[in-house]
Design a protein around this nucleic acid. Structure first.
Lengths: 184, 184, 184, 184
DNA sequence: TATGAATGAGGATTCATTCAT
DNA sequence: TATGAATGAATCCTCATTCAT
């Protein structure tokens, strides 16, 4: 009788997150995932049609959780600029925690993937909500062209800070908020 | 005299640039380079000791030319803010022309390569020269922590604009200058 | 349970033995081994980490079996000269059976391999046991310098006889014993 | 006007001998031969149809010279056993001098080569002349089957001594003569 | 004739994917 | 359903050979 594995998808998720952090996205193999997760290679294919689907799903889920955490901040009773800062702090922390996964969004060849379009759309929605608060509370107006660019750029800046100026979290965060305040 | 292919290094360079644009840096193989350039695999190894040397050289040369073109702008007789704008325009155009190659400088796993450290250092030098002009002419002061972050971020933003908002060059450029003016 | 090939290591062993006999040790490739054994290239790497490990293991196993067979003779209840003759006959037969592999032990560039040092050491041990019997029974004394040379030379002579005077097994064997009797 | 190279074949010969000594027969490439000899790869092919012909010719010439040197000994005015000793000493020295080349004769796949059959035949002729002297002077008789085996074996033993017990020339030589005296 | 750049088949090795158990 | 051994196309790289100059 075959073994029944509990929470297979969670196990796979954890394993891939670990591996990406340790070795980087492009260095991980199906064998490594199998080993790290304790699940046979063949079994992985019962849950995902191929390697790409598996890895993009993990990145997708990771970002979806991040987005959920960001959304929570918007629901708080704070003034909008405080929310902006909390939002950026949260974003920074999330990306810090799964370093390698963050930067995958920078890779152009992942943009095409349908899952990421969904993430992008969701992120856009949240970010616009944040900006709307700012507009209302501070009487500002952000143009459409500006909004669609600044949202992604702030994320990229965050990713870059996390990757490049390691162990300078305080300075990174200060810089990030400084930049945001000047631009928004 | 032996068989000679004219402009062989140029041909290889062009082929790699094409391939990186089409498939991304990490997806290209020596076979693909050979086919795209019309040069036999073995011949590639007469010019570069291995794949890494070949590809990093192409990225390196591409960026070195860009840096040369940027430096020219700093030598002009213009006021510093005008130079900043010209600098960003030039950067945008350069990255536009060899789309895929731009983002390679951002990939963390390439940082170790000596050639890229050289490029980074050179870019830093040029960018600081630009900031110094601004400081002197406009009586500003930029802090060290800020400088080292903003230089990379502006490039990152440029790369992102080029990659994401294709065929919106005018809007991209306006946005880029707007962002820079607010931050510097 | 996954796909299983029966006796896979035996199949690989046989294939390599065949190929060494046909083409010589240094002429065989992984592709050839895969083809001859009917096993995919990738599968070979499930059993041996690389080509060297595969081929040296085959030679090693082949010799180890030979040495086991030789040792058996020393345990017999025979007078020592009879044992010497049986020893040589056995050696001749063993080398006959896997012609090409015999000479591999003579190739100087394989000497470094740990596995071969073990084989050499074991052969030396067995041979010295044989000589000791002779010394005790026949009241002879063999000098150290002589022993370390004659042991290898007798093997070398055997290999040469097998390779060069094919289908003259009787004459070869007579010659071999004749030589040994004169020298020991 | 093309360069005219003096003594091309001698240069190639010397280069290959050097390379075989340094790196071993199977490790040398046409490029290495070209570099060591100072002659372009293409030019090598004006003198030899392929790599095999080139290398076997070098081995052939090397042995032919050795045989000439051995023949000289037989013409001396010495008693035959003294000649035998001189013969073996000479053989040992010759093989010592071009270590790697000697052992090539042990490789079975070179036996087929026509050039080597000629060398073998010539060596046989010389060795038989030596034995004839011994037979006449010492009143011995050597059988055909014995002769054709012992001649090759003595050479193999010599090669083995040179390769294996390096820097023990005196002991090697003593052993070699001791063996020969017992067998002949 | 001499050159050595150019060629490409063939080398070892990897790894996503399949499928018998 | 879960397994992991088996597969083989594709990877990088080498090197004997060719041929335009």
């Amino acid at each position: 009788m075959p073994k029944i594995i509990e929470n297979i998808e969670q196990k796979i998720f954890n394993a891939v997150v670990q591996l990406i952090r340790k070795h980087g996205y492009s260095a991980i193999s199906m064998r490594m995932i199998a080993k790290e997760s304790g699940i046979a290679v063949g079994t992985l294919y019962n849950y995902y049609s191929d390697k790409e689907e598996l890895t993009t799903t993990v990145v997708y889920l990771s970002w979806r959780e991040t987005l959920r955490n960001l959304e929570v901040i918007l629901d708080k009773e704070e003034e909008s600029r405080k929310k902006l800062h909390l939002f950026l702090e949260r974003l920074y922390e999330e990306i810090s925690q799964r370093r390698g996964i963050g930067s995958e969004l920078m890779k152009h060849d992942l943009y095409k993937d349908e899952k990421f379009l969904e993430i992008q759309a969701e992120y856009t929605r949240i970010f616009r909500r944040l900006l709307k608060d700012l507009e209302e509370e501070e009487g500002k107006t952000f143009e459409e062209d500006f909004i669609k660019r600044i949202q992604k750029n702030l994320m990229l800046i965050t990713i870059n800070l996390v990757n490049e100026f390691i162990e300078e979290d305080q300075e990174n965060m200060d810089y990030l908020k400084n930049v945001a305040d000047k631009l928004l």
